[in-house]
């Protein structure tokens, strides 16, 4: 038992004195999220909103694509991060009901790094880039909204028209979508 301590004393080089009992510590998940946030490189088309600034584990990302089929729309995603981050990915959902092949009507997002391909080395920036990519290149081969994926695959022009009318708050095949125009 004592051997361990003598090894410790050999190891240590610094000698900061402390005697008082320590108070609450920043948790490992918070440390990692703080680091991810300081490395976040947000372009002008994206911004974050923290409903409670003291809680950095829950926030909203607002995406306003300036090119592609979804240009002119405003899309909000909630990020919910647990104390198990980065072992577990953040939970990300789209707040609006939108017409998109990879986002279902409940706001679930089919993005590989949010689920099956998540790794602790990935960070919040990777997730945000992934979301941005979904709006530039909707992907018909991994559909969550089958109708939208079908439209994209079979008739790109009709898909474009559907995107525009859904974004304006219209209906596509009897399903009404949220108005998301700026």
């Amino acid at each position: 038992m004592l051997k361990i301590w003598s090894m410790k004393q050999q190891q240590q080089k610094s000698d900061a004195a402390s005697g008082q009992t320590k108070k609450k510590k920043v948790t490992a998940a918070q440390l990692r999220v703080q680091k991810d946030l300081s490395e976040l490189a947000l372009p002008g088309t994206m911004k974050t909103v923290f409903p409670n600034p003291d809680d950095i584990l829950n926030f909203t990302l607002t995406l306003t694509p300036d090119e592609g089929l979804y240009k002119g729309g405003v899309f909000n995603f909630t990020f919910a991060i647990t104390q198990n981050f980065p072992h577990e990915p953040p939970k990300v959902k789209c707040k609006e009901k939108i017409y998109h092949p990879n986002i279902d009507l409940e706001g679930n997002v089919c993005l590989n790094i949010l689920r099956e391909d998540w790794k602790p080395v990935l960070n919040l920036n990777a997730v945000i880039v992934g979301l941005q990519f979904l709006f530039l290149e909707p992907n018909a081969s991994d559909p969550l909204n089958k109708d939208a994926a079908n439209d994209l695959m079979t008739d790109r022009d009709r898909f474009k028209r559907n995107v525009r009318s859904a974004m304006a708050g219209g209906a596509v095949k009897g399903e009404t979508f949220d108005r998301v125009m700026k």
């Binding site: 609450k24 703080q34 976040l40 947000l42 974050t48 923290f50 950095i56």
Partner: peptide
């Protein structure tokens, strides 16, 4: 461009912009 927090409080964040403001 530091970001500072305790377990309970966000003290000051230089980035992202919304947290800097609040």
């Amino acid at each position: 461009k530091p970001n500072l927090r305790t377990e309970e409080k966000t003290l000051y964040y230089s980035a992202p912009a919304s947290l800097e403001e609040s």
